[in-house]
Every structure is written in structure tokens, then in C-alpha cells.
Amino acid sequence: MNIIKTKVDGVVIIVPKVFGDTRGYFFESWKATACREAGIGSTFIQDNESKSCFGVLRGLHYQAAPYTQSKLVRVVVGAVLDVAVDIRRGSPTFGQHVAVELSGENKRQMFIPRGFAHGFVVLSDEAIFAYKCDNDYMPSAERGICADDPALGIDWRIDREKWVMSPKDQALPMLANAEFLEIGK
């Protein structure tokens, strides 16, 4: 695995070694020892998968303490623009984001530590998105930030009028009005 550090501390891109031939391909999508060596110490307890069509924007989501989650995200089929926003109060990169295209073709993954809001938009006709979490989902701890908050400056690469969002995601607050996380929570 090749680990690529990003401009925001803790968020890394994982590029697996893919072995392909006429039969297809093989790669290790998770290897605890390699990830620990790269500073990813999360113990994942749950795997999730979603299927979405073009323009679906999910996020930006996070959970309040003590239910914060680290995530390791990837795309099995299709392509998405995946985004992680630093919401750790006191962080030198508070409010900054990392955006990366994840696809079934490039097999890249993004590790998102606790203290980040997360979301993605589907760039292909459809996408199957898979991710690992290191804490249980807790509905009462659900929080989020408006995906098109100008303070975030995220280029989602799809015109706003083509977004397909849930009513809940459409009603998320701007960063200035969101509940932030303290570093270390």
C-alpha cells in the first residue's frame, strides 16, 4: 500500500497495490499492519455500503462526542468526489477540507479520522460506496454541515441544480452555526 499524506493532518489517501491479469484483479483493501505503520490506529467495528445514482450528494455528516467516528472509505463501482472537512475546534486546519476522486477503477481509499465531517457526490451513472467505521452509528449524535457553505469553498464538480439530496441534508447548518468537536474527542 502507498500512503499519501494530505494538507490536513490525519487525513490520508491509501493507494493499494493492484495485481491484475486476464482473470481480473486482486488487492488488499485493508491491512492493519500497513495502516498502523502509517499512523492509522483505528479499530474498525462496522462495514457499511450504499448505492447511489449520478448527482446524489450525501453529507456533510459527523457524529457528536462520545460517538465520533473514524472512517476508511472507498468506491467499489463507479466514481465519487469524496470530501473530509476538519471540524476540530483549535485545529490549525479547522474548516479546511480534503477532496479526492475515489473510483472502482483507481481503487483509492481515504482515511478520515475522528473530528471531521464527511460527504461525497456521485460523479458516475451510479456508485457503490463502502466504508469502515470505528464506532457505532448513534442517531441522537447525528450532526452535519451544509455542503454548499461558501465558507468551506468546496468544488463538488457538479452544478448545484443537479444535486440529489435528502431533505435532512438540505437543512444542515452552515459551518458557523454547527456544533464543533474539541481536538482529542
Rank of each mutant, 00 (worst) to 15 (best):
K5E: 14
T6D: 07
V15L: 12
F19D: 05
F19H: 10
D21S: 02
R23Q: 09
F27N: 09
S29E: 13
K31H: 14
E37D: 13
G41W: 00
S42M: 02
T43G: 09
I45L: 05
D47Y: 07
E49H: 13
S50F: 08
S52T: 10
F54M: 10
V56G: 04
Y62W: 09
T68H: 01
L72C: 06
L72Y: 12
L72Q: 03
A79I: 01
L81A: 06
P92H: 11
A99K: 00
E101V: 15
E101Y: 03
L102H: 04
R108W: 10
Q109H: 04
M110P: 01
G115T: 07
F116D: 08
F116K: 00
G119W: 04
F120V: 10
L123Y: 06
S124Y: 05
E126V: 09
A130H: 12
A130W: 04
K132C: 05
C133Q: 11
N135H: 13
P139L: 07
S140F: 07
E142H: 03
G144Y: 07
I145E: 09
L152F: 06
L152M: 07
D155N: 11
D155F: 05
W156A: 01
R157F: 02
I158D: 01
K162M: 12
S166T: 13
S166H: 04
A171T: 12
L172E: 14
L172K: 09
L175Q: 06
E179A: 15
E179M: 15
E182W: 08
G184C: 04
